[in-house]
């Protein structure tokens, strides 16, 4: 990039000054399943990337807590946002489902409204771990099946439910992560589900 344009103001779109409530949902799924694509298709900003560092005591850490015996891992994730109204803004995080990431779940995503597990039927195994972890964290979720054009065996949602041993109460939805309306439908499916759960909970004293 030429130095002449390096001082251009960044093209950030600020939130409304009345914005006061930030909410979050997380899109989890295996490598290349379409997380970033889904976030991009519904986001009002170009997805941004950030990272968190995790420090773990190394093997044989000594009592002095010597820095050299600690290992640091970086987990990167991207996000987009939707201004729901003047006061509320919803952040969507695209997060890798792999193991080391879950160590950071609480630090990053505690208080999340819920999650979308994005599934590629050609690599269903990648979804197991995410589903198991979400159940463990008691985070409500829906499963969205991202249909790729080159997926020749089009499994039905029922077949996929069986394969993932997914309980009946977990909503499933087909999607094309590249299409805004489709991505929007996934989010609505999730929040609808959360709403039902909240209503049921409020009805029981």
């Amino acid at each position: 990039m030429g130095s002449a344009i390096s001082e251009l103001p960044s093209h950030r779109t600020p939130l409304a000054d009345a914005a006061e409530t930030g909410l979050k949902i997380v899109v989890v799924g295996g490598f290349g399943v379409g997380k970033t694509t889904l976030v991009r298709s519904v986001s009002e900003i170009r997805p941004l990337n950030t990272e968190e560092v995790m420090t773990q005591a190394g093997v044989g850490v000594d009592e002095t807590g010597d820095v050299a015996t600690k290992t640091t891992t970086t987990v990167a994730f991207d996000f987009g946002r939707i201004s729901l109204n003047e006061r509320m803004v919803l952040y969507m995080f695209g997060a890798p489902g792999q193991e080391r990431f879950w160590f950071l779940w609480d630090r990053l995503f505690s208080g999340t409204l819920g999650a979308v597990v994005l599934v590629d039927t050609r690599r269903m195994d990648d979804s197991w771990y995410a589903i198991d972890r979400l159940e463990h964290h008691r985070t409500p979720f829906v499963v969205a099946v991202n249909r790729f054009d080159d997926d020749t065996v089009r499994h039905s949602l029922d077949e996929i439910r069986q394969a993932l041993a997914l309980p009946e109460h977990v909503p499933m939805v087909d999607c094309d992560a590249r299409v805004r309306e489709s991505g929007k439908n996934v989010l609505i499916t999730l929040v609808d589900h959360l709403y039902e759960l909240a209503m049921a909970q409020e009805a029981t004293p």
Binding site: L23, V42, I82, S83, L84, N85, M88, L90, L113, R138, P140, K184, L187, I188, V191, D192, L194, Y195, L197, A198, M199, Q201, E202
Partner: peptide
Amino acid sequence: ASLPDSDLLKEVLHGLRNL
């Protein structure tokens, strides 16, 4: 195990549907 209250979720739904 608990959820945000339903009023808040209703507002979120409303916002999403109006996108």
